[in-house]
Computed example of a mutant assay.
Amino acid sequence: MTAERQASGQADGHSHAHGQGHARGDAQGGQGGQAQAAPQQGSELLPGVKSVIAIASGKGGVGKSTTAVNLATAMAAQNVRVGLLDCDIYGPSIPRMLNLSGQPELVGERTLRPMANYGIKCMSIGFLVAEDTAMIWRGPMVMQALEQMMRDVDWGELDVLLCDLPPGTGDAQLTMAQRVPLTGAVIVSTPQDIALLDVTRGINMFQQVNVPIFGVVENMSYYVCPECGHRAEIFHHGGARETARRLGVDFLGEIPLHLDIRTTSDSGRPIVVTQPDSPHAASYRRIAAGLIDKATSAVGGAGRSQPRIVMM
């Protein structure tokens, strides 16, 4: 049976998160928004990973995955051993953004070796299904697939694992918060008021499950015309900074709306890699350096927070 057919999980309600498919999820059983099992310790899922950082957003369309990829490449450029876990089961985009294709190599009976490019180890459901496959899965199946991509992947020794979460506060966020001792979470937003409402919800969700908030990033913060240099604040400006101040969390930095960031992401050649001397790459490097410091401090101090089970 092909990996594409195994991952579709539509005919019999069983989830197979990779080619040797051994996770099973009952499509009719359980509530997607509730945890059905006790949380596992992080050492069981990610034994060689020092810190795990969730990259999240309250709503879609704010450039969260682009931010996650460029932060990962910026960390790799600073000699950090970094991995990137694509937690979006329904719309995985990380394989294309990292110019990765094909299927991961199977090591032993049930362990996958992550794909890699630009110094980043990566795992995504997108490696296991065709790009246009519609993943019609219920919550428990999503949760089991995420656990498999942590437990059954040979991540090796990593300083940081970035987890690119889907937008919102659903099953993927709940799984990560309850199963993994997250070192911290980063919230990505655009400056307009409607996006910032969801920033507040996202921060509240992580606080409820005992995950430290590392801070907020304002993406598409402003636009500078490449022809005349005129600056336009298309989506407003400074809203994420003000929201972070109001909620008592750090503001990590702002990323402009720029054509080069979009085109390099679409082509699988992140701007931090292809234009390392650009001011946009410098913005990502500054934010990445701050996150490295926060993760190092958290792990070297009290250690990673243990997951707390919350019925949501």
Score class of each variant (00 low, 15 high):
Thr73Lys: 01
Ala56Leu: 03
Gly63Gln: 06
Leu46Val: 12
Ser57Ala: 15
Gly58His: 10
Val62Lys: 04
Gln41Glu: 14
Gly48Met: 13
Glu44Tyr: 07
Gly42Ala: 15
Thr66Glu: 00
Ser57Lys: 09
Leu71Thr: 06
Gly48Pro: 12
Gln41Ala: 15
Ser51Glu: 11
Val49His: 05
Lys64Asn: 07
Ser43Phe: 10
Val62Thr: 03
Val62Ile: 14
Gly61Thr: 11
Val49Ser: 07
Thr67Val: 15
Ser57Met: 03
Ser51Lys: 07
Asn70Arg: 02
Ser57Trp: 02
Lys64Pro: 04
Ala54Pro: 04
Pro47Gly: 13
Gly63His: 05
Val49Arg: 05
Glu44Asp: 15
Leu45Cys: 10
Gly61Met: 09
Ser65Trp: 05
Thr66Cys: 00
Val52Lys: 08
Gly60Leu: 08
Thr67Gly: 00
Ala72Glu: 06
Ser51Leu: 04
Gly42Ser: 15
Gly48Ser: 13
Lys50Phe: 08
Gly63Ser: 05
Ser43Tyr: 12
Lys50Met: 04
Leu45Ser: 09
Gly60His: 08
Gly48Gln: 10
Lys50Trp: 04
Val49Gln: 04
Gly60Ile: 07
Val69Phe: 03
Lys50Glu: 14
Val52Ala: 01
Ser43Asp: 15
Ser43Trp: 12
Ser43His: 15
Gly58Val: 04
Ala56Asn: 02
Ser43Asn: 14
Asn70Cys: 08
